[in-house]
């Protein structure tokens, strides 16, 4: 059976086309679901204040602290960040502001 991508499982998919047993074989496809619009508060990264300690990375429930191949924090994934503020709270250098979403 060919891999079923999300485009094949649209909201109007009929019973003949839906994946048997509810199996999903495009693993990790939840990244296509945006949870960023849940935010009422927003973390703002100040690059100049950041010392690259990376303490913000493991505390994020939404895997939304972006780290590049060199191991440098490069920003926040606002597609998925729900605005919990844990990253801002743990930052020892106050490099992440936590502000009202506008």
């Amino acid at each position: 059976m060919s891999k079923k991508e999300l485009r094949d499982i649209r909201p109007d998919v009929n019973w003949k086309e839906i994946t048997p047993g509810g199996v999903i074989d495009s693993s990790g496809n939840a990244h296509l679901f945006k949870t960023g619009d849940w935010r009422s508060m927003k973390p703002i990264w100040n690059e100049e204040k950041c010392k690259q300690c990376l303490l913000c990375n493991p505390v994020c429930p939404d895997s939304s602290i972006k780290v590049n191949e060199e191991g440098k924090m490069t920003g926040i994934d606002y597609d998925h960040c729900k605005g919990c503020g844990v990253c801002a709270k743990v930052c020892p250098f106050k490099a992440i502001d936590f502000v009202e979403e506008v």
């Binding site: 496809n29 990244h31 935010r39 597609d79 960040c81």
Partner: peptide
Amino acid sequence: AKKPERLTGGHRMCAGCGAPV
């Protein structure tokens, strides 16, 4: 931190939930 994420964003746990951490 450089290792690949094996739980992606886009899950529907509450904001600030301890479990996905």
